[in-house]
Design a protein around this nucleic acid. Structure first.
Lengths: 344, 344
DNA sequence: ATTAGCACTCTTCAAAGAAGAGTGCTAAAA
DNA sequence: TTTTAGCACTCTTCTTTGAAGAGTGCTAAT
């Protein structure tokens, strides 16, 4: 779709003013705020054209115009200036991520909180998936005749374990045999090649030399409070109520349904393309539940592999430039911290 | 506070009708629905008395009456008939709890969902605390010169483990030494006596005899997706919007603040008295944030010890009889399942 | 002690009107 | 041919008004 320079300017003005005010934008407002050197009447003519092209629409006969879904799309693809964070904001992010990271769950919660502070949208994040990690080995630690601890290790250094209630009494030799089988068969494969689901990372902080007893004590403590690395993490639900779109309680209800349902948000993260920032506007989303919302997502990585995604959900009238800038910065920072701290 | 039989009947009528309708209750309504054998005028006189005693109040000069906080309290303590679940509802609960429980997290989520279906209030639940469990032993499994898996066991059978990055290279003998120290010093003490925090349970299902390899595979899978046993679990936020009290977006905002804040809800669960059902009405709650809400909580147990609590939060105009019945039934059922399935 | 009757108060709802914003069209100007 | 001033018209929003309804408190009669 080709637009004259002036039509572009007018469309941009409509989108930007509407994003800022949540109100329909009239020809006078544009003439006043953006000095295009033409009168409102001329702008009106152009607006009639833009409406015919489907880029803007009129809520009712005598209101200003609001961008249509396609209008937003054109804006995002062609007109929008790349946004950036203030130095202060970047420093805030760096400060949070510079802290020594003990627990993956803490890191994720901190990230959510951070994004919550930086935007007024719903923040959602999928915990690291380990599908593409490489199996290293398993080990058994027998605890009782019918009870053992199974330890799973990935080549990256990730280790996880779980108690197994054995169906029958088993000798150490039998356990050893199973271990052999696994380790010879699976070494070097990714977990997704072995099973299908794959999550959870473990790591621990370094402490001083001779304080091994203290350390052990501390480990017991953190062990007992450790949190999941799977599933969906959320924040900012309260923020989104600031948006005038959510003045109607029904919209809020739909939003809470979405949040409690989880599946849609998970799918949105799953579908995220690994390259760049994904922007889905209105009905571009496959899910009916979010067809009047927009979603900005991007993946984050560990050692170059995609392991999860972060998303923002807001009204179509979202500040795309800012949302994109925040998601971009955060996913990069998160990838870096994750890789650096070897939490996976 | 002594009330005549008739005043009691009138107060009960006001509370019950108001709970059902969310509207102020007038003298005529009471005369019509409850056959007290007196005219509206008489009821009006009694209502004037009840108002003077602080049990009911008038939103404005010419509206009906609504119960005051003290009115609800009197109702809950003196007038309310004990509620009960329908057979169908009890069967639903039994059906859910009869399923083989693999994961503690799943059990908790199921419980929340259940209560969400049974009431229209916010459901919140604290995961099992293990403070009062008894330490049994620890074990180390060395994974690398500076890396080991620490396994912690409680006498109840609970086991948890975590990878430890050792600050310096350690010999197996040194690890053995530390193990000895811990096991001799701490055996028989509760975790709260040893450290302060204490959570997380692990268990696994029994499978068939020779399928150890399959089992191991499955364990890897579930291990990688295991979830936290700590913290606060929530549900039913969407439900509570059905309450007319939450037609105002500001109330919803406060509610979301409460949910995202978590601290207040956690405190409410912490403060729950171990005996019976706790009902806190309006300002009886210490927290300003919930001073126009009511909270019904009760603890659940494992092997006789209190390990967590379940709560319902709703408007003061809550159906107390039902809320209490649900919480009572659920906490008992949960305690029983937990103990039976040895998840802790 | 109870009740019928009634004046009074307050809320809620709908209708009506005024104000304001913005458009589209026409005819004139550039 | 493009732009613009002018103006009638439409639609929303806000305020006012008035009527209807619910419920009370008081008084006097039962």
């Amino acid at each position: 779709m080709k637009l004259s320079k002036r039509k572009q300017q007018i469309l941009e003005a409509i989108v930007e003013v509407h994003i800022a005010t949540a109100e329909p934008v009239g020809s006078r407002t544009i003439a006043r705020k953006y000095k295009l050197g033409v009168s409102p009447a001329t702008i009106r003519n152009e607006m009639a054209d833009l409406e015919e092209m489907g880029l803007i629409e009129q809520p009712h006969t005598s209101a200003g115009r609001i961008p249509s879904q396609q209008g937003y799309r054109y804006y995002v693809d062609q007109l929008m200036q790349k946004g950036s964070l203030t130095e202060k904001e970047e420093n805030l992010i760096k400060a949070v991520f510079a802290r020594q990271v003990r627990e993956l769950a803490t890191l994720i919660q901190d990230t959510i909180k951070l994004v919550t502070q930086l935007t007024d949208y719903l923040v959602f994040l999928s915990g690291p998936q380990l599908e593409n990690a490489t199996f290293h080995q398993i080990r058994f630690l027998q605890l009782a005749p019918q009870k053992a601890l199974l330890v799973v290790m990935a080549e990256s250094g990730w280790v996880e374990s779980k108690v197994v209630d054995l169906p029958v009494p088993v000798t150490p030799e039998e356990l050893e045999q199973i271990t052999q089988v696994f380790n010879s068969y699976f070494r070097g494969l990714t977990f997704s090649q072995i099973t299908r689901t794959m999550l959870r990372g473990v790591y621990d902080e370094l402490t001083r030399k001779r304080q091994l007893i203290d350390l052990t004590l501390e480990i017991i403590e953190t062990l007992l409070t450790k949190e999941s690395a799977e599933g969906l993490y959320l924040g900012g639900a309260r923020n989104i109520l600031k948006q005038p779109e959510y003045r109607d309680i029904r919209r809020v209800r739909e939003l809470l349904d979405l949040i409690e349902g989880e599946e849609v948000l998970k799918s949105l993260l799953m579908e995220t393309q690994p390259t760049g920032i994904n922007v889905r506007i209105g009905k571009e989303n496959k899910f009916q539940e979010v067809e009047d919302c927009s979603v900005v997502t991007a993946v984050y990585t560990f050692g170059g592999n995609v392991v999860g995604a972060v998303g923002l959900l807001g009204p179509m009238r979202m500040d795309y430039a800012r949302a994109i800038a925040v998601i971009e910065y955060i996913t990069h920072a998160l990838s870096e911290v994750l890789t650096r701290s070897r939490l996976l």
